[in-house]
Amino acid sequence: MKRFLTGYCRLLDGLMGLALLLMVVLVFGNVVLRYAFNSGVTESEEISRWLFVWLTFLGAVVALHHNEHLGTDMLVSRLPAAGKKVCLVLGHALMLYICWLLLQGAWQQAGINWEAQAPVTGWSMGLFYGAGVFFALSAGVILLHNLWRLLSGQLQANELVMVKESEEQAELEALQAELARQAAPRPHQAARGREA
């Protein structure tokens, strides 16, 4: 399942890159058309707005999978392992409930607005609200997988706190881990040290 989620998030990364590229082309192209040729593509603004909404929800799914959402770990990081596990279960249960609420609301909005057309493109407004449905389902699967890993004992101690206090702290920890990997003796180096 972990391999599936990793591949799924790689696919989402590609879709985010494509969405970002399309947004840049549409917006920049429209600016050039307006200033250079006194014309433009009327659909570009609406499509860019929709892409931005979908890009945000895609990014939130990927960030959830990689535990990159910011949060406050001041209390949880000081708890013993059992306390961290209890907080993780409670936090995931609350997030699953919020995903359920988001799924219900987005599903209802998508259904209500399915026949409504966007003003410029004429596309169904249900597609716009579908981003919430997509996020709620994807996030729910990731949260359930994390809970399963915790309850089955597959989570390691360093994974029990799944938020970071700040981006700088996350970068510092990644740098420290990289330095520790570089400082650790490699197997063939350790064997040479024993022979000498």
Rank of each mutant, 00 (worst) to 15 (best):
L18R: 05
L18Y: 10
A19T: 05
L20E: 00
L20C: 11
L21I: 12
L21E: 05
L22H: 03
L22D: 01
M23W: 00
M23I: 13
M23H: 04
V24E: 02
V24F: 14
V24N: 03
V25Q: 08
V25K: 03
L26Y: 12
L26H: 03
L26A: 10
V27S: 08
V27I: 14
V27M: 15
G29S: 11
G29Q: 09
G29Y: 09
N30C: 11
V31K: 09
V32C: 11
V32R: 05
L33S: 12
L33C: 08
L33R: 01
L33P: 00
R34T: 08
Y35K: 07
Y35S: 12
Y35Q: 12
A36I: 07
A36G: 10
F37S: 09
F37A: 11
F37K: 12
S39A: 14
S39V: 07
G40K: 04
V41K: 10
V41C: 04
V41T: 10
V41D: 11
T42E: 13
T42G: 10
T42S: 13
E43Y: 12
E45D: 13
E45Y: 15
E46W: 06
E46G: 07
E46C: 07
E46K: 02
I47M: 11
I47P: 00
I47C: 06
R49N: 07
R49V: 07
R49Y: 07
R49W: 03
W50A: 04
W50V: 11
W50D: 10
L51Y: 02
F52L: 14
F52I: 01
V53T: 14
V53A: 12
L55K: 02
L55Y: 06
L55C: 05
T56D: 05
T56K: 06
T56W: 15
F57L: 15
F57C: 00
F57E: 03
L58Q: 01
L58N: 06
L58T: 00
G59M: 05
G59S: 14
G59V: 04
A60K: 02
A60I: 08
V61R: 02
V62K: 02
V62L: 06
V62Q: 06
V62G: 04
V62S: 10
A63E: 08
A63V: 07
L64H: 04
L64R: 10
